[in-house]
Design a protein around this nucleic acid. Structure first.
Length: 213
DNA sequence: GCGACAG
DNA sequence: ATCTTGTCGC
């Protein structure tokens, strides 16, 4: 193998660095948040099963669910998650017919080595206010106040279902929303004794139930 | 150079 | 993420 074949991801890394400059990390939406969409992907064999769920912020009612199957075209590489999950997610979001004001993605936003995780990529592509929610840390460390910093920057927040829970949801800005607003909105859409916000929890369950029969 | 590493 | 049985704990 020569050098050209050894680093096939240089272009994606460059794209992430460019997109990182376009991420809006403050609240930038006028309508009140009434409906929130969550999108998640599961895998079986060589197929990616993706589901998106829209939930009413006030009563947690499920407003709409859509799903899609996509062939896996790229491997999972830490830091380059967009390579594997962005296509299935963007395709599934196109199937939605009901309006929603906020998008939750199963992966980090700016809490990323290059400040451009999957949630930023999807948020910029769709131009929808987006929050990244991940179940584990890719970079950075949790401070005593539960905020997560990386190289001196406050980029995320470790949200626990309760004080003595080991389960943590790492929240970070995806696009067009501030970190503090992100934290409050994620908290508001997460059920008691649960650490994954409803839209994502339901989308995860649905994607795993999809069958290719 | 070494270890870590979203799903 | 997925592949997987029984098992520990509230």
């Amino acid at each position: 193998m020569n050098n050209n074949n050894r680093t096939p991801y240089a272009k994606v890394i460059k794209l992430q660095k460019e997109l990182a400059k376009k991420v809006i990390t403050r609240d930038d939406f006028d309508s009140n948040v009434e409906f929130i969409c969550g999108v998640d992907v599961s895998y079986r064999k060589k197929i990616a099963y993706c589901s998106a769920v829209i939930i009413n912020k006030e009563n947690f009612d499920i407003i709409e669910t859509v799903s899609s199957k996509t062939g896996i075209k790229n491997p999972y590489i830490p830091g380059l998650f967009i390579l594997r999950e962005s296509a299935p997610i963007l395709q599934t979001l196109r199937l939605i017919t009901r309006p929603f004001q906020l998008l939750l993605v199963d992966g980090h936003g700016v809490l990323h080595p290059r400040r451009c995780g999957l949630a930023c990529y999807v948020g910029i592509d769709t131009n929808i206010p987006t929050i990244g929610v991940a179940k584990s840390l890719l970079c950075g460390g949790v401070q005593s106040d539960n905020f997560v910093t990386h190289k001196g920057e406050i980029l995320g927040y470790a949200l626990k279902s309760n004080e003595n829970s080991k389960k943590v949801a790492y929240v970070s800005v995806g696009h067009k929303i501030g970190l503090l607003t992100s934290i409050e909105l994620v908290k508001s859409i997460t059920k008691i004794n649960q650490y994954i916000p409803e839209p994502l929890r339901v989308a995860d369950k649905l994607s795993k139930e999809l069958d290719d029969k």
